[in-house]
Simulated scan of single mutants.
Amino acid sequence: MGRESSINPNYKIMAYLTANEGREVSGSPLFLKLKDDEELKETTGEIAKALKADVVKLKNNDYMIIQI
């Protein structure tokens, strides 16, 4: 929101994970729907570790895995 539109982000979204049944995401990152918050946390951590990536928890309780 505070970035200029001409500046490219210095990260890549690798995956988007949610436990929200109604959430739909389109685009290139991997998108996973998990059954509950516990499975969501565990799976997010495991994928991030395997990809040597960082995790961002969003306000809506979804997670993004990003590589810088």
Results as ranks from 00 to 15, higher is better:
residue 21 E to V: 06
residue 24 E to T: 12
residue 22 G to A: 09
residue 3 R to Q: 13
residue 26 S to I: 04
residue 42 E to S: 15
residue 9 P to N: 14
residue 19 A to L: 04
residue 16 Y to K: 11
residue 9 P to S: 14
residue 3 R to P: 05
residue 9 P to V: 15
residue 26 S to V: 04
residue 17 L to I: 07
residue 37 D to K: 13
residue 24 E to L: 11
residue 35 K to F: 03
residue 39 E to P: 02
residue 38 E to Q: 12
residue 8 N to D: 09
residue 38 E to P: 00
residue 28 S to T: 06
residue 5 S to N: 12
residue 27 G to L: 02
residue 3 R to D: 14
residue 36 D to E: 07
residue 32 L to F: 06
residue 30 L to K: 08
residue 4 E to S: 11
residue 30 L to Q: 05
residue 1 M to I: 01
residue 14 M to N: 12
residue 19 A to W: 05
residue 31 F to W: 00
residue 33 K to M: 08
residue 5 S to D: 09
residue 8 N to V: 10
residue 6 S to T: 07
residue 23 R to L: 14
residue 33 K to Y: 05
residue 27 G to K: 03
residue 16 Y to M: 06
residue 25 V to G: 01
residue 37 D to W: 05
residue 6 S to M: 03
residue 22 G to Y: 04
residue 3 R to E: 11
residue 36 D to C: 07
residue 22 G to I: 00
residue 42 E to P: 04
residue 1 M to P: 01
residue 35 K to Q: 11
residue 22 G to P: 00
residue 21 E to N: 13
residue 12 K to L: 12
residue 33 K to F: 02
residue 42 E to I: 15
residue 45 G to L: 10
residue 42 E to M: 14
residue 31 F to A: 07
residue 2 G to F: 05
residue 32 L to Q: 06
residue 27 G to W: 01
residue 12 K to Q: 15
residue 44 T to G: 07
residue 8 N to G: 04
residue 10 N to G: 13
residue 43 T to E: 13
residue 30 L to C: 03
residue 33 K to V: 07
residue 7 I to L: 15
residue 36 D to N: 15
residue 29 P to S: 08
residue 4 E to R: 11
residue 1 M to R: 00
residue 25 V to D: 00
residue 8 N to Y: 04
residue 9 P to I: 11
residue 7 I to F: 07
residue 11 Y to R: 04
residue 40 L to Y: 05
residue 11 Y to A: 05
residue 25 V to K: 05
residue 41 K to P: 00
residue 45 G to Y: 04
residue 23 R to W: 02
residue 43 T to N: 11
residue 4 E to L: 09
residue 41 K to R: 14
residue 44 T to K: 07
residue 31 F to Q: 02
residue 45 G to T: 04
residue 42 E to V: 15
residue 14 M to H: 05
residue 23 R to E: 04
residue 19 A to R: 09
residue 24 E to W: 00
residue 1 M to Y: 01
residue 19 A to M: 08
residue 30 L to P: 00
residue 20 N to S: 13
residue 45 G to K: 13
residue 13 I to A: 01
residue 21 E to G: 12
residue 37 D to Y: 10
residue 11 Y to N: 02
residue 12 K to N: 14
residue 29 P to V: 03
residue 22 G to Q: 09
residue 3 R to C: 12
residue 27 G to T: 01
residue 44 T to P: 05
residue 25 V to W: 00
residue 37 D to F: 11
residue 31 F to G: 02
residue 10 N to M: 10
residue 30 L to E: 04
residue 4 E to A: 13
residue 5 S to L: 14
residue 14 M to T: 04
residue 1 M to G: 12
residue 1 M to D: 06
residue 21 E to Y: 03
